[in-house]
Design a protein around this nucleic acid. Sequence first.
DNA 1: ACCTGAACACCGTTCAAGT
DNA 2: ACCTGAACACCGTTCAAGT
Lengths: 234, 234
Amino acid sequence: MGVTKASKRGPRRASTPGEVLDAALALLDEAGLEAASIRNIAARVGVAPNAIYTYFPDKASIHKAIVERLLGSVDHGVFADREVAWHARVESLALELRARLTAHPGAVPLLISNPLDGPRALGLNERLLELFADAGLDATEAARASYLLTVYLVGSITLEVADTRDPGPLPPESDRIDRREKAFAQTPLEQFPRTAGAAASMASHISTDQFVWGLRRLLDGITGPSRGAGSHSS
Amino acid sequence: MGVTKASKRGPRRASTPGEVLDAALALLDEAGLEAASIRNIAARVGVAPNAIYTYFPDKASIHKAIVERLLGSVDHGVFADREVAWHARVESLALELRARLTAHPGAVPLLISNPLDGPRALGLNERLLELFADAGLDATEAARASYLLTVYLVGSITLEVADTRDPGPLPPESDRIDRREKAFAQTPLEQFPRTAGAAASMASHISTDQFVWGLRRLLDGITGPSRGAGSHSS
DNA sequence: ACCTGAACACCGTTCAAGT
DNA sequence: ACCTGAACACCGTTCAAGT
């Protein structure tokens, strides 16, 4: 309450930090990481390259801000509801995060090259720990479990975007499955018989099905198959 | 047999592709990704920058070759032995891969920004599929399981090196645990109570213990807890 | 307070030329 | 066949100057 709007002196800013991030994210989406240079961002904002340093101290801080923005865009409502079974809540959280992050493949390299220590990242971690506490895990187990899930998310997303090198939005799943099948059809059968033979199933790697399957195997490993409440130690 | 040594004409190469990779990997290890520029590599090899293009068509191909070299350095002997229980063999493979890759943190960004489709990567995938076949999984299940394990490896390694931003070899585990504990001691308790409270357990995230724990949870999820042979479908 | 032009020390890559 | 010098079109960042 009672916070004044902001300073009003000087030649009034030509832009805002938010617009700088908009420009950066747009470039990331359209043309990939290397296109999101300070100079290109400045051009899109309509300002000289060095004016960017009025908004952010350096390029790394822009990267961190983008990651925070993406993490901040996840809808907490879906999995914060304690009425829902915890299994389903973890699944919602994981799917929501995957959706938000794969929507901007160009930004994924930023996600995985910086430590996840911003307020949004910590907030999500907090949600995860609550979830596992609700599942009956003690503090140590919950910490391990939430880290395991983070590993799974990061790994899945990384592989998913690494498999589709070119910039721009991810093509529809069906197209990607198609491409994968063609790629595997070319792998030398004699040398890698199982890999080549598994082509059909491999196609499903990049699908949501595979993601959910892996997620469930992982949760089963943590709390025991098809059981919700906590058991076991170590 | 009977392969002649190589061409002997021309001014004799000042270097070899292998030495170029040595130089690149050394720079990666000592000073990180951005230090491993074509120009720095050339300087270390003792040649003009553009001479590098005699050995590799572009920078991306050097990156791919480094990844292949690292993957090629894993010792297949440890887990190829079918006398050993498959659980232990998977664990050996995972630990061996983790050791080889975290030994060169600077190279990890290369690993995760290109599709894992080189001959070495396919060879390792083949080993994994054999392993899961030995465990009694059918082709589809084995494909999913091997993908899940790849996700786990990539995610673990990514988070491990992302948490230690500065270039150079990873510090000893005890130091990293120490640093993590200090970092978490600073996280605002009111805002993220569970995250801050879990500090002690979080420290173990970057340890081999945590890696093995997660790996076992994951294998349990795939084949059922503390059981080796295959069961279940879908 | 904010923005600019100019400069610095870098990139990856290409091209014509030398041996 | 291999290497070089020079150039091209870029980078991120800094600095002095303008309003």
